[in-house]
């Protein structure tokens, strides 16, 4: 049986359910340092699909690729605790301020360094931007076919992958030749939980930057156990044209940003007492809101 080489594109995102005042910088970009960071939810659905393929096709490897600041290595470890084999952190100041196009350029250039990839799986979209653009843009830049809104991998045979897509008004089953890029919907199965053995195995996995800034007493471990070293790539490790990265490489610019302050309306607070419900209904009928 064939084994596959899978890359899962994942992103560490600010938890948009917990946004404080310092969330935005003056230039309109996101101040990630001020926010709690989580594994983008749909990227976990993507990881689960990758892990299922790995179960069905022994020998398959699952590698997480993430672009972000140093602390984004957290989600690589998280993925390894759940069954990913390894990960790559793509991190460089030159990436800062990238829009989706500059981001997909950086990611696709990194992917070009990884040989013989069969399947690239990403979450449909990240909750900080909700754009759903990076997956298809990466596919275009690599010249690969794409299948978006995937809910289930049905089978892989004859060099083709069969996928069920969940669309707004229905479902589709499509076949797509490998290599290919897919993006996975939140309606796909949730990601499995951490595995205790894998947690023990990988809890000390670190990038070089993390090692340098930690007071790790067990540095020899990282020579003895190479799987604990998470590769970290900067612009020097991939072939890129710097002008296509970051703000300068981004066709879209943020002109202005306005914070949405949820202004509490003067709500009428009522109880479930008959008289109060009756009064509410009377008001609604009188104002022709209902009736």
């Amino acid at each position: 049986m064939k084994a596959y080489k899978i890359i899962v594109l994942a992103k560490q995102v600010p938890d948009t359910r917990n946004v404080g005042k310092d969330a935005m910088k003056a230039d309109g970009t996101i101040n990630r340092a001020a926010l709690p960071a989580i594994f983008n939810p749909e990227d976990l659905n993507a990881l689960e699909q990758a892990l299922r393929i790995k179960e069905n096709f022994p020998g398959t490897t699952v590698t997480i690729l993430t672009m972000g600041p140093g602390r984004a290595a957290e989600i690589i470890r998280e993925a390894m605790f759940r069954g990913a084999d390894d990960g790559i952190l793509l991190s460089d100041r030159a990436f800062a301020g990238s829009d989706t196009l500059a981001t997909s350029y950086a990611i696709s250039q990194a992917l070009k360094k990884v040989n013989d990839v069969d399947i690239i799986i990403a979450g449909r979209q990240a909750i900080d931007g909700d754009t759903a653009q990076v997956g298809p843009q990466v596919a275009e830049k690599l010249g690969l076919p794409q299948v978006t809104y995937v809910e289930e991998v049905q089978k892989i045979e004859g060099g083709k992958i069969f996928l069920k897509r969940r669309l707004e008004r229905g479902v589709e089953v499509v076949s797509c030749p490998l290599p290919m890029v897919m993006t996975v919907n939140g309606s796909a199965p949730d990601c499995r939980a951490r595995n205790a053995k894998l947690l023990m195995k990988y809890k000390h996995a670190k990038t070089v930057s993390e090692l340098q800034s930690s007071n790790e007493d067990y540095l020899h471990l990282y020579n003895d156990r190479p799987y604990l070293n998470i590769p970290e790539w900067s612009v020097n490790d991939i072939e890129v044209n710097l002008a296509e990265l970051g703000l300068s490489g981004s066709p879209t610019k943020v002109k202005t940003v306005e914070n949405v302050v949820l202004q509490a309306k003067e709500a009428k607070v009522i109880t479930s007492a008959d008289s109060e419900i009756d009064e509410l209904m009377r008001e609604l009928i009188e104002s022709h809101t209902i009736g």
């Binding site: 948009t16 946004v19 969330a23 935005m24 900080d128 909700d130 940003v257 914070n259 949405v260």
Partner: peptide
């Protein structure tokens, strides 16, 4: 940003 900001692009 989950609806917390309105951006003009």
């Amino acid at each position: 940003f989950g609806g917390n900001i309105i951006a003009t692009i």
